[in-house]
Simulated scan of single mutants.
Amino acid sequence: EGGRIPVDSTWDAEPDAEAMALLAPYKKQIDSVMCRVVGTAEMSMDRFRPESLLSNLIADVLREAAAEVQGTPADMGLINIGGIRNSLTEGAVTIENVFEILPFENSLCLLTMKGSDMKQLFENIAVRGGEGVSGIQMEITKSGKLLRALIGGKPVDDERTYTVATVDYLADGNDGMTALMQAGKRVCPKGATLRGLFAKYVERHTAAGKKITSRMEGRVTIKE
């Protein structure tokens, strides 16, 4: 065949160029969406256990988002550290950053829980060595035992009902959050993706002239 390029490889090479030409206008569109700046982060934030700046922020976003469903924020916000896949760096926040941080198709779920089930939930979180929480304070041991928990600064009342704003993935009992399956009521508003809620939160703060910030507050502490 005297060094001729095999027919297959030339055939393979052609559609790629064609496909690229076809996709070019869409890529341009996607790039412009992904590069859109939605706000500014005051500081770099990472995610880790037992408590971190970024997991605190995202749990706050979930807890506040409940107000659109029930008129007031939830008693507790909860996000799994494993669902946060990247850190947020200081400076401009783009839609691409939001996708990198929250790549999963997770959506808001608002659960109504009895106090006794909330205690079980805190035990689930203790076993994991902490998760992203808002509205509560917990003390746990290194070995994953729950020592103490407060909701809104008060001890848990077994007979009272509380609301937990989390994502559907956890509401289904994944990542060891089996207590969430005891919820008496479950509302998962259509189209309320965590990614969308987070982007909206950033945009709302930007419109009010604020940068995105977070604090370490001893939400989950490990006692020896």
Score class of each variant (00 low, 15 high):
residue 165 A to E: 01
residue 164 V to S: 00
residue 168 D to M: 10
residue 148 R to N: 12
residue 123 E to C: 06
residue 192 A to H: 13
residue 181 M to R: 12
residue 188 C to T: 09
residue 212 I to D: 00
residue 203 E to I: 15
residue 129 G to N: 07
residue 181 M to L: 11
residue 169 Y to I: 07
residue 160 R to C: 02
residue 125 I to S: 03
residue 147 L to H: 04
residue 144 G to A: 05
residue 211 K to C: 02
residue 190 K to N: 10
residue 150 L to D: 09
residue 149 A to V: 10
residue 192 A to T: 09
residue 150 L to G: 06
residue 177 M to Q: 07
residue 195 R to A: 11
residue 189 P to G: 08
residue 176 G to N: 05
residue 120 Q to R: 14
residue 151 I to Q: 03
residue 184 G to D: 10
residue 178 T to G: 00
residue 186 R to K: 13
residue 153 G to L: 13
residue 199 A to C: 10
residue 134 S to P: 03
residue 152 G to D: 01
residue 162 Y to P: 02
residue 174 N to A: 15
residue 136 I to E: 00
residue 164 V to D: 00
residue 119 K to N: 12
residue 142 K to I: 07
residue 167 V to S: 12
residue 161 T to E: 13
residue 154 K to H: 10
residue 174 N to W: 05
residue 131 E to T: 06
residue 202 V to L: 12
residue 203 E to N: 05
residue 189 P to D: 05
residue 208 A to K: 13
residue 195 R to S: 10
residue 215 R to F: 08
residue 136 I to C: 14
residue 180 L to S: 06
residue 165 A to V: 03
residue 143 S to I: 08
residue 138 M to G: 04
residue 120 Q to D: 10
residue 192 A to K: 15
residue 174 N to P: 04
residue 141 T to S: 15
residue 177 M to S: 05
residue 125 I to Q: 04
residue 177 M to Y: 13
residue 159 E to L: 12
residue 167 V to A: 11
residue 174 N to H: 15
residue 181 M to G: 00
residue 183 A to R: 03
residue 181 M to V: 08
residue 198 F to Y: 15
residue 180 L to I: 11
residue 179 A to N: 01
residue 215 R to E: 14
residue 172 D to P: 00
residue 140 I to P: 03
residue 181 M to I: 03
residue 143 S to A: 14
residue 130 G to P: 10
residue 193 T to C: 01
residue 197 L to S: 12
residue 137 Q to P: 00
residue 205 H to R: 14
residue 129 G to A: 09
residue 137 Q to T: 11
residue 123 E to G: 11
residue 175 D to I: 01
residue 158 D to S: 08
residue 210 K to V: 02
residue 173 G to I: 12
residue 171 A to G: 07
residue 190 K to P: 06
residue 144 G to M: 05
residue 140 I to Q: 04
residue 134 S to R: 02
residue 120 Q to A: 12
residue 156 V to E: 03
residue 134 S to V: 02
residue 216 M to H: 04
residue 158 D to I: 01
residue 189 P to I: 11
residue 167 V to W: 08
residue 197 L to I: 15
residue 134 S to G: 09
residue 211 K to Q: 12
residue 216 M to C: 01
residue 124 N to F: 02
residue 176 G to L: 04
residue 169 Y to V: 09
residue 188 C to P: 02
residue 151 I to L: 08
residue 155 P to A: 08
residue 149 A to Y: 03
residue 184 G to I: 11
residue 199 A to L: 11
residue 152 G to Q: 02
residue 130 G to W: 10
residue 160 R to L: 07
residue 181 M to Y: 00
residue 170 L to A: 14
residue 168 D to A: 10
residue 137 Q to H: 10
residue 170 L to P: 06
residue 213 T to P: 04
residue 205 H to K: 15
residue 148 R to A: 05
residue 119 K to Q: 14
residue 132 G to R: 08
residue 185 K to P: 00
residue 194 L to T: 14
residue 140 I to W: 11
residue 209 G to S: 08
residue 171 A to I: 09
residue 157 D to C: 04
residue 142 K to C: 03
residue 180 L to K: 11
residue 189 P to F: 11
residue 207 A to W: 02
residue 211 K to A: 12
residue 184 G to N: 05
